[in-house]
């Protein structure tokens, strides 16, 4: 079948990610999954909102959070969202090399974000003694932000597996949907982060 052959301008469909039945299914399936993920994070957010003042005498959100680090993390993740848009742009133009380049940049930005998050957690634990077990606030904070971090880890592993596997194959109708679903997932991670920095960090520093 035409699956395995690299695409050339003549066989290039308008949107290679959705040209096959499998591609369409992956596209719909991931979107629907994101609908479920929305509720998953809603429940973590709800729990956090209910427990954010339950510090049990331990450090409060005002004691802990700092604007600079969170701003840096936000910029990294937002930019990685844009770079993955660039990657999909080049996929539609059938420019495999450029797509891989932009995906590589996306991965680097993701790793940067992850490093900062690990640094942040380590900072809270060593400098404030603020852990998962300190208080209900601690449990809720680490669970919400940690689950988001876990999604980043999963996304990065996914991305690297895709890039390594397809490095020598070029773009075809079999792997284009895979890149596209990854990109959608990655945007969703960013969506969740927008609410985390707003609800957890910014609101935590205000009130």
């Amino acid at each position: 079948m035409s699956h395995d052959h690299s695409l050339n301008p003549k066989t290039m469909p308008e949107d290679p990610a959705k040209a096959t039945m499998e591609g369409k299914h992956k596209f719909l399936g991931l979107w629907f999954f994101l609908g479920g993920e929305t509720v998953l994070f809603a429940c973590f957010f709800g729990t956090y909102l209910a427990l954010r003042n339950s510090t049990a005498g331990g450090p409060t959100s005002q004691d802990l959070f700092g604007l600079d680090l969170v701003f840096l993390m936000t910029v990294l993740l937002l930019t990685s969202s844009l770079t993955s848009v660039y990657a999909m742009y080049h996929m539609k133009n059938n420019d495999f090399k450029k797509m891989m380049l932009w995906l590589g940049i996306t991965a680097l930005l993701g790793f940067g974000f992850l490093a900062l998050e690990i640094y942040e957690f380590a900072h809270y634990i060593s400098d404030y003694g603020f852990t998962f077990r300190s208080s209900a606030f601690g449990s809720a904070f680490y669970t919400l932000v940690g689950f988001h971090g876990g999604h980043v880890v999963f996304g990065l592993s996914w991305l690297i597996a895709l890039m390594v596997r397809n490095a020598k194959r070029g773009l075809n109708l079999y792997n284009a949907p895979k890149f596209n679903t990854f990109a959608l997932y990655w945007h969703f991670i960013d969506v969740v982060w927008v609410f985390i920095f707003t609800v957890v960090y910014l609101m935590g520093m205000v009130s």
Binding site: L51, S135, A136, S139
Partner: peptide, 11 residues
Amino acid sequence: SAFFDVALGGN
């Protein structure tokens, strides 16, 4: 963790 542990502020 302390989500449901009232002593640590859980609910």
